[in-house]
Design a binder for these strands. Structure first.
Lengths: 226, 226
DNA sequence: CGCTATATTTAGTCATGCCTAATACTCCTA
DNA sequence: TAGGAGTATTAGGCATGACTAAATATAGCG
């Protein structure tokens, strides 16, 4: 795959194609990428996914063997990382420059990520001081499209102690809104008091909360000194 | 056309449909809107225009009589003004907030105008202090979608004297780049020394220039005291 | 007033990206 | 190891919005 043909492809990729590639990347972080999982993420029927995967495979963007799942080729990975960089830079910019709350940015970024130029990307990255994380703590691919290493581990798996919140993986508007209200945003420090199968109990400077396991699942933390 | 059906339609309009409506509005400012003119503006064949006009007419967005040209209905005008407001706010924002030059903003705005939310529109308008003109001096439709009245007249039709530049109608990148280089941007004051069929001669504080008629055509000015 | 040049519309095609229904494959369990 | 549950793919359609080629309307001129 030469530079030349890369650029030809990039110029012609549709919004739908870019979205599929991005979702393949995101899904592959947590396990094998099935047709069904992709269909759910894209809000589309499985048959439609099969069709798109065949097209993306013919473009050299995914490795696809029927009934065997999909993976990104290196060309496809480049595209996916580029879109992910757009998405997360836009989220960060909307928050810092335009006063969006972190539960509002996802939907806006989801549309804009496909329609900004490289110039726009560079200027907002510059304005932001080339951030490595978006407001949710998600890593932003670098300009050369490498992902910062993952730090932290799930709050769910932690023992009682002192922690700093690093990342919130949920993009549910209401879940984010709730966490923001509690002050549970990246950088926040708290004490984990108790964990059980159904929930975790924790204490921030502002109060004590019982957090359902479903929420704790998507929260990544690192241990800190008391 | 009730409010309710307006909103239903708005939700379903495609990017192409929005673009057609916008171009009908822009073309109608300078004369009757022909299929051919529309085809040129959209970069599309006349046959395609006919097809789209029939669809827009069936949606109640344009008045279309075959062979007789098109006009916007009031519903269509609302949509066109909304898109135009997006376009010109985005151009202004890119210039003032992100340091774009005025010859770079058009292409970026052309894509983004279809993909921003009302929330985004409101926030950049707020940030900008609710401007009435974009960097080219083009009027920005108000939030309630009325256009500020046109001021000034074409430099081409002026007698020698002192003027202030109000608006540059060209969106040619190189023409804009040249004008910017000369300091001929909205607000600039200059003396018109001489006009002829082929060109106008003028003097700014920085120098004297002979401007081809083609450029002078698209420049609107108002007279000022010396 | 008719004829021709130009503008416009119709008819038929194609790619995209989705859908449903029917069929095929996989893998687990009995 | 055969059957079934569940997952995936094929087959066939539809809407969108472009295209070409062919037909038709308009307008300007002699």
């Amino acid at each position: 795959m030469t530079k030349y043909s890369d650029e030809l492809q990039r110029a012609h990729l549709s919004e739908a194609q870019e979205d599929y590639l991005k979702q393949v990347l995101l899904l592959s972080e947590t396990g094998p990428v099935t047709t069904q999982a992709l269909a759910e993420r894209m809000g589309v029927r499985p048959a439609s996914v099969t069709g798109m995967l065949k097209k993306l495979a013919s473009l050299g963007l995914v490795d696809y063997a029927p009934y065997r799942g999909v993976g990104l080729t290196s060309a496809g990975l480049q595209v996916a990382l580029e879109i992910l960089r757009h998405h997360r830079l836009i989220e960060t910019y909307l928050t810092k420059a335009l006063g969006y709350d972190w539960d509002e940015v996802h939907a806006e970024a989801e549309r804009l990520e496909h329609h900004i130029s490289e110039a726009f990307e560079e200027r907002i990255a510059e304005w932001l001081g080339h951030p490595e994380r978006d407001p949710h703590g998600d890593p932003i691919p670098s300009p050369s499209l490498t992902l910062p290493p993952d730090a932290g581990r799930s709050l769910r798996a932690c023992q009682p102690g002192y922690y700093r919140l690093l990342r919130v993986r949920s993009q549910d508007k209401d879940a984010l809104s709730l966490l923001a209200r509690l002050g549970l945003v990246p950088g926040a420090r708290f004490e984990l008091l108790e964990t059980s199968a159904a929930a975790v109990r924790l204490r921030l400077s502002e109060g004590r909360y019982l957090l359902p396991a479903a929420l704790a699942d998507g929260i990544d933390v690192e241990e800190v000194s008391p």
